[in-house]
Structures are given as C-alpha cells and as structure tokens.
Amino acid sequence: MNIFRLAGDMTHLASVLVLLLKIHTIKSCAGISLKTQELYALVFATRYLDLFTDYISLYNTLMKLIFLVSSFSIVWYIRHHKIVRRSYDKDQDTFRHYFLVLPCFLLALVINEKFTVKEIMWTFSLYLEAVAILPQLVLLQRTRNIDNLTGQYVFLLGAYRSLYILNWIYRYFTEPHYVHWITWISGLVQTLLYADFFYYYFQSWKNNVKLELPA
C-alpha cells in the first residue's frame, strides 16, 4: 500500500459517500445517471468475485464490501425508493449503456492476462469501469444547472483513478516485474474521459461560477 493508492481509495470512498449523502438526505437523485450507477454495480460485482476466496487484508475486504453494498443500494434507491425515484430524470438519462457492456465483455475475452473465468470477469470489470461514467457525463451536458453535490461526486470519481495512475507509476518503480498494461491503459482511458469535465470543473471553481458543461 502506498500513499497514492490510499488517497485514491479514500477519494473513491468519498465519492460514494457524497452520492449516498445527496440521495439519503435530500431524497433526490436529480442529475444522477442511473445507468452509470448500474454499470458501477456491475463493475464491482464482476471485480470482487474473489471477495470470499482470496483474503488479502481486512482493509481490502472491508472496502470491497463498502463499494458493493453502496453501489447496489444506490441503484435500489434510484429505482425503488418512493421519493427518490420521482427525481430520476429517465427521459434525459438515455445513454444505451447496454451497448457498453457487450464490447467490454468481448474485449475481455480477447485481451486478458489469463483465459480463466475469474480473470476474464476481472478484465471485463476494468474495461467497463473505464466507460461507466459516459452516461453520467452525457446527462451532465443535458442538465443545465449541475448541483454542487453532483459536481463533487463526478470530480471525486475521476480524481480517484488519477491517483491510482500515480500508484501504478510508484509501484512500477518500486516493485520488480510490476507490469500490468491492461490495468494501466484502461485506467488511463478512464481518466482521459474526465479531462474536459475536470477542465470545466476547475474553471467554475476558479471563476467561482456555477458548473456548466457545453452541450
């Protein structure tokens, strides 16, 4: 464990807590893409298959449980909670996210480190996570006024993977034979997808104006 990875995990945890805070306290999911939340639940479900088979550390197991429980409960909240579901804008959240699942799965079948079920599911979860934010970014461009919590949620979600990139660089230089191209490239693609969001988020913070993404 290094400081970049710990910072990354804490940033990721913060993004989930911000989202749960928004949904649970103000009982609203306005501006939040259910599709991205469903993709993230699938990412964690396919990535943490080794939750009960490979014990790495208490921290690792605890965090996996937190991410699994929180992502599935967020999907449940938006779909079934009688008040929250009313604020879900399904006419705007129209990204066909199923079109992301199949290509990621096919790619995982072709490009992976080992052709085993667990490895392919793990690789699938990496590719899927790289593109999971797309429905949310599209929704942000459609919803004119982005509220602070939603903006902070997306920012933290993008920031966590950038910190992971620093972690991979650190591990590359400190651990012999630490090379994982699949992880690195999908993590880089994921972070690059946030590039323009980061730009507008920073501009709104610098000029102290409301965050708006150009259509």
Partner: peptide, 10 residues
Amino acid sequence: SQEPSTKDEL
C-alpha cells in the same frame, strides 16, 4: 504464490 499482482488493489 502470493505474487504482488494488481489483484491486491480495489
């Protein structure tokens, strides 16, 4: 063999 793979990451 507990080789330090990325699998120890979240």
